[in-house]
């Protein structure tokens, strides 16, 4: 096994080991943190499909993260108050079942990504960055000013939603759910990158003309990647909302988009496991630096700057030495 492979394995094992140790030591909050890392890493894996594989620098992925969160919040709040979501033309009830919520989140995220992507992908480069940012802001302001679902106050769900056969309120069981989904997403993203679609997408990133000559439309390839990316990020959003039992417009803010991107960069661009390493480091920094200084964002900024300027490979790159990154 290559050095990168070993590091990936170690990273992958780190989360359940941490959670298991925390369970033994009776430190449930550490399990909650590990769950948070798994969920944020999932969001990073989602963005990485667009960003790492497709070369689409989206600064608006918080939109999908928030849509997933609101899918959970809206469905669960209707179930909580026993008010149907819709009565005409047909009855739609709220739900407290995680699998149903996930399905709705994924579909909603995919549809939103289809709409935003169809428009944004008409542009490239810096236009694309700014447009995705602007669409994210549009949804953010909409969520704040639309009073039906709490506006800026957000929505509180008092009990975590259920999963058949599990007690989701038990931190370690909820961690298990998040971790399994992360593992599946990593596996899926790996398969996607190696599939003909993934290879064509990579090729379109490096040389658009080459893809066009074999009869593929780069626009369609990218749109599909963007939709998959949005759907995965929305799933992460639904889980994140369930972790907090709360959803608010902050999940849609552009700082959130920036943070998801930071996970990828801290871990290492173009690395499948980069978001896992990046999210873990981010949460660690938040809790270590945040405890030391009220101004920990300054240190986070400096660290990020150093990584971008001098350590392109991020954590995995630094650990794996000069080995070439595989997409």
């Amino acid at each position: 096994m290559s050095r990168t492979g070993l590091i990936n394995l170690a990273l992958f094992a780190m989360l359940p080991l941490t959670a298991g140790a925390a369970l033994m030591l009776d430190e449930p909050f550490i399990i909650t943190l590990a769950t948070k890392v798994a969920i944020l890493a999932l969001a990073g894996v989602g963005l990485n499909i667009a960003l790492g594989l497709g070369g689409l620098v989206s600064l608006g992925h918080a939109a999908f993260f928030g849509i997933g969160g609101y899918a959970m919040g809206i469905l669960a709040s209707h179930a909580q108050s026993f008010v149907p979501l819709m009565e005409t033309p047909f009855l739609i009830e709220g739900t407290r079942s995680m699998p149903v919520i996930w399905l709705v989140a994924v579909i909603a995220g995919a549809l939103a990504a289809l709409a935003i992507g169809a428009l944004s992908l008409r542009t490239t480069g810096v236009y694309f960055i700014m447009i995705t940012l602007a669409f994210g802001q549009m949804l953010y302001y909409f969520a704040i000013s639309w009073p039906a679902y709490g506006g800026e106050d957000g929505l509180s769900i008092y009990v975590r939603n259920g999963f058949p056969g599990l007690n989701t309120l038990d931190p370690i069981q909820f961690f298990g759910i998040a971790f399994v989904i992360l593992a599946l997403a990593l596996w899926g993203a790996g398969r996607l990158a190696a599939s003909p679609f993934g290879l064509a997408l990579s090729a379109a990133r490096q040389n658009e003309a080459r893809v066009e000559t074999v009869g593929l439309s780069p626009y369609r390839l990218r749109l599909l990647a963007f939709v998959i990316s949005g759907a995965v990020t929305a799933l992460a959003g639904a889980l994140f909302a369930d972790l907090n039992r709360f959803v608010s417009p902050t999940m849609l803010s552009w700082q959130m988009s920036g943070e998801i991107m930071i996970f990828i960069i801290l871990g290492g661009v173009g690395r499948l496991y980069g978001p896992v390493a990046g999210a873990a480091l981010f949460i660690l920094l938040e809790h270590v630096l945040g405890g030391l200084s009220d101004f920990w964002h300054v240190y986070l900024g400096l660290l990020l700057l150093l990584v971008v300027l001098f350590a392109r490979g991020g954590i995995i790159g630094a650990l794996a030495g000069r080995e070439v990154a595989h997409d």
Binding site: T32, N244, S248, T250, M251
Partner: peptide, 10 residues
């Protein structure tokens, strides 16, 4: 709010 909820858990 997200951070506040996590801190409350902690």
């Amino acid at each position: 709010p997200e951070i506040a909820v996590q801190l409350a858990d902690k």
